[in-house]
């Protein structure tokens, strides 16, 4: 079972929900939590587990071999991303612009641009008791999150059987990285807050998930602030409300110190039970 936790807007409590739900579930059964917000991975701040393995993740980029090159200019012509440039008698490659499409490399008549691996980020694998935690982290300056997300998903698929509950903390927004992070999920939990910003961004997220034909449910965080528009919208759209996590300064304080909230607050535990009942 693959459950993705997403939100249109950042900072609505996606990571809070992912880490609390994963830890709570792991009190009884095996759970794998994966942080796919590779630009700003935060779940790890709330999880105490032991490092099992760390591995570098690579993307493939072309490397110019001067001796083989005839300066025909095809590589520059076929690169839609301006990542390969011919400068006089030299070919320059700009790795961060490269999308690893292999066109320059494979269309080069003299094999002067073989693809070589370049580090784009790091995957860490942690484990304690029944909880496994996987996190990937994009190197600063690397601009494309999608290849790293995709490799992280592969890693999880390869190492854990399908029967295990897998939770994915998705990046915020509705663009490519979110699509990549949610496209294989069996269920998507959308986290929002009952404010105009929350509602506006929830609508975007719902539209996105409709496009992907995903089954969704909404968790309203900081319930009690703002107004009822989010509840009304969910009713109109026929999206189940899985939980309402109350607004409280106590929660904000626990969160700020990197603590799990359900352990201290029984009312939160109750809400988590509601989610589990609905999905599993």
């Amino acid at each position: 079972m693959k459950i993705a936790i997403a939100s249109g807007k950042g900072g609505t409590g996606k990571t809070t929900l992912a880490t609390n739900l994963a830890s709570y579930l792991a009190e009884k059964e095996e759970v794998v939590l994966t942080d796919l917000d590779v630009e700003e991975p935060n779940s790890g701040l709330f999880i105490n587990a032991d490092l099992v393995k760390k591995e570098d993740k690579f993307k493939m980029i072309p490397e110019w071999i001067e001796d083989k090159c005839t300066l025909c200019g095809i590589c520059q012509k076929v690169c839609n991303f301006h990542a390969v440039i011919q400068l006089g008698t030299q070919i320059l490659v700009f790795p961060e612009l490269c999308h690893s499409c292999y066109a320059c490399s494979e269309l080069c008549p003299t094999d002067a641009l073989p693809m070589i691996p370049q580090k784009m980020g790091e995957l860490s694998h942690y484990h304690r008791n029944k909880l496994t935690f996987i996190e990937s982290r994009l190197e600063i300056g690397q601009e494309q999150a999608v290849p790293l997300i995709s490799q992280t998903l592969d890693y999880v698929d390869r190492h854990f059987p399908n029967e295990i509950i897998k939770l994915y903390d998705a990046p915020p927004g509705t663009s490519c990285p979110v699509i990549e992070a949610t496209k294989d999920a069996d269920f998507v939990i959308l986290v929002t807050e009952p404010t105009p910003f929350g509602l506006h961004d929830l609508k975007l997220a719902v539209e996105t998930m409709k496009e992907l034909k995903k089954e969704t449910g909404v968790v309203v965080n900081r319930f009690g602030i703002g107004n009822d528009d989010v509840l009304r919208y969910c009713k109109e759209e026929n999206i189940p409300i899985l939980a309402k996590i109350p607004n409280s300064r106590k929660i904000a304080e626990l969160y700020s110190s990197g603590e799990l909230i359900y352990r201290k607050l029984p009312e939160v535990k109750q809400q988590l039970d509601g989610i589990i009942e609905h999905i599993l």
Partner: peptide, 28 residues
């Protein structure tokens, strides 16, 4: 934009001053 990827890079390019808004949480 949020994050550290392309959109932020585009927002920053050419700027004269950056205001960072943060909160005192471990994630912040």
């Amino acid at each position: 934009s949020p994050g550290v990827g392309c959109p932020v890079v585009s927002s920053l390019s050419g700027a004269n001053f950056v205001v960072l808004v943060t909160e005192p949480s471990v994630s912040g």
